[in-house]
Design a protein around this nucleic acid. Structure first.
Lengths: 177, 177
DNA sequence: GGTGTTTGTGTGACGGAGCAACTATATGCC
DNA sequence: GGCATATAGTTGCTCCGTCACACAAACACC
């Protein structure tokens, strides 16, 4: 309880800040951040029940949706928010745990693929229903169809502005640019 | 196997995944994530120009907006996405850098306050205008007033659902609950 | 075909953050 | 008052991810 802060005794003469600290734009982004981290925390809790971290889940997901259920390391890095060395290490761990294996690229001997294993598919299969439930419960289901629609439109605008290289991002490939 | 009749050209027979991997709800959240991380990356780049990390910026901001420009360590942890030990360490660093100082709590000798210093206020003052520009450029300005309004409404719904303890979150104090 | 450059990946060192354990203080209950 | 319990903060340990660098293979250009 901050009741013990001597409110009156010192009228606290602070050096002023030239920017308005209560500008609604700050709180707007704060809302964005709280909503996002709140969601990811909920999801992380469920991932953990299945012995997965959020990045591991994302890796499994991205691999499972890719043609041949495989992706070159660099491409995987591009699709996740990881550096290439980060991908190296995640794939190391997941390889050790049997969720993923490395496979040489026949056409470019520098490259290697990360391929999701049967065990990886199994694990994903195990997590997905619950994940979808959470997604529905805390995100989709909180909004009316119209609200959801508006939100997705706005998010897409922001995403396209801020992350132009991945215009088609999640599902499709990046444009020729 | 009638090897002379190549049934399909697809050589990869995968164990099926029972959940639809292309459920639009996945991509909806993917959009959310890409927009958010895109924004935070932009911001982080500017913070770095002023020798600040995102969490340090947030700490400065929270302290500057709090009565007496101070916050108990635990409260600071509650307002940020950090654990209490995380806060201890951030405050250590920022104290070392002169942006913040610790001050004993007179009424509870277990507690200590983190107080933003003049240098901290100065640093914040230095970052804020540019930060506000970025906020405007990549977030607020991307949306029409109506879109922004809708988005904030939706975000608030999600935030309130997912993070009920901080109903008034960013600016106000949590409710008595 | 050699040589320089670019690209794909892995590695060592480092820093940040969480958990669990610990200390010190406060509080409740008798 | 005296003890049990709860709370505030710090610290040791560990994991995870990045950066800078190393190395190998592909490519470009002459």
């Amino acid at each position: 309880m901050p009741s013990n802060i001597p409110r009156v005794k010192s009228p606290v003469y602070h050096v002023p800040v030239s920017t308005d600290l209560d500008d609604p734009r700050f709180t707007a982004f704060g809302l964005f951040a709280e909503a996002f981290t709140g969601l990811t925390n909920r999801f992380a809790a469920q991932f953990e029940e299945h012995r997965l971290s959020a990045v591991e889940f994302e890796v499994l997901m991205r691999l499972a949706r890719s043609p041949g259920r495989r992706l070159r390391m660099t491409d995987l890095a591009g699709q996740t928010s990881l550096s290439t060395s980060g991908v190296t290490r995640v794939v190391d761990r997941m390889d050790r745990d049997g969720l993923v294996r490395r496979e040489a690229c026949p056409s470019d001997r520098r490259s290697s693929f990360a391929v999701i294993t049967e065990a990886g598919v199994g694990r994903l299969d195990e997590v997905l229903p619950g994940h979808l439930e959470l997604l529905q419960q805390w995100f989709i289901g909180q909004l009316s169809p119209a609200e959801l629609d508006g939100m997705l439109g706005s998010l897409r605008k922001i995403r396209d502005a801020v992350n132009p290289c991945a215009t088609a991002g999640t599902t499709e490939e990046r444009p020729a640019a």
